[in-house]
């Protein structure tokens, strides 16, 4: 990645169907918020389903949770919350047209997100090792609840879907880095960083609900 000098950056061009930069920015931001609302409905349904399963099979959740390490979960919560902070910083610097600081913060966020995934992989590996798998593949030892497999099924579905969102979020950060090499961010145009920031806030938000439901309650 070459570090472009401020002089070689282009100004952003407004797309043909917008009247001005403000309309374009407002539209993109509004669209992103709507998409987030849609995502929240999806995760909301999934979490509601989780609460319902918790109510149906409290023993399965209690025994399943005992096999999750809340310290790893807390570490990941720390990673995500910190990366949320650095993303917000990136958007703030983009508004001030401080291209270099934008990049630093994006790279920091990217590293923290990667850290999250590494911890997630370690956790998954332990589950595989102990046979704590969904459905028929479940062969964990020491469970008295006949429904313990449901907890792990739910665990893999929710954390898997969340991890997929983390990956997409990292893709957005890389896209922002690429744009930052080409186009100058200004007070009026910092759309890519703003959009990635909104998306990342969702990834954070979902985790804040998942963490207690899976690691702490039950």
């Amino acid at each position: 990645m070459s570090t472009a000098t401020a002089g070689s950056l282009q100004e952003h061009e407004v797309a043909h169907h917008f009247e001005d930069l403000e309309q374009e920015f407002e539209s993109h931001r509004f669209g992103m918020w709507l998409f987030m609302a849609s995502e929240i409905m999806m995760f909301g349904a999934l979490l509601t389903g989780g609460l319902f399963l918790l109510y149906l099979h409290p023993d399965a959740f209690a025994q399943g949770r005992a096999h999750l390490d809340w310290r790893l979960g807390a570490l990941n919560t720390f990673f995500l919350l910190t990366s949320g902070f650095t993303m917000a910083r990136a958007a703030a610097f983009a508004q001030k047209a401080e291209q270099g600081k934008v990049r630093t913060n994006l790279l920091l966020s990217l590293a923290l997100a990667a850290g999250f995934l590494v911890v997630k992989c370690i956790e998954y590996k332990a589950k595989f090792h102990h046979g704590l798998l969904p459905g028929n593949a479940f062969h964990g030892a020491g469970f008295t609840s006949p429904h313990a497999h449901i907890f792990f099924g739910y665990y893999f579905v929710t954390t898997g879907l969340h991890a997929l969102h983390v990956l997409v979020g990292m893709g957005l950060m890389i896209w922002c880095l690429k744009v930052s090499n080409r186009v100058r961010f200004t007070r009026a145009y910092y759309t890519p960083v703003e959009m990635a920031g909104i998306y990342w806030a969702l990834v954070d938000l979902v985790w804040i609900f998942l963490f207690p439901l899976l690691y702490l309650v039950g």
């Binding site: 849609s38 995502e39 409905m41 999806m42 995760f43 349904a45 999934l46 389903g49 399963l53 969904p134 459905g135 028929n136 593949a137 429904h147 497999h149 449901i150 099924g153 739910y154 893999f156 579905v157 879907l161």
Partner: peptide, 22 residues
């Protein structure tokens, strides 16, 4: 509303393949 259908269909697919028991 559509995202709720989305998650329902995902869960049905996962249920079909991995029998997670939801």
């Amino acid at each position: 509303a559509t995202p709720v259908l989305g998650i329902t269909l995902i869960l049905l697919l996962v249920e079909n393949f991995f029998h997670i028991g939801i």
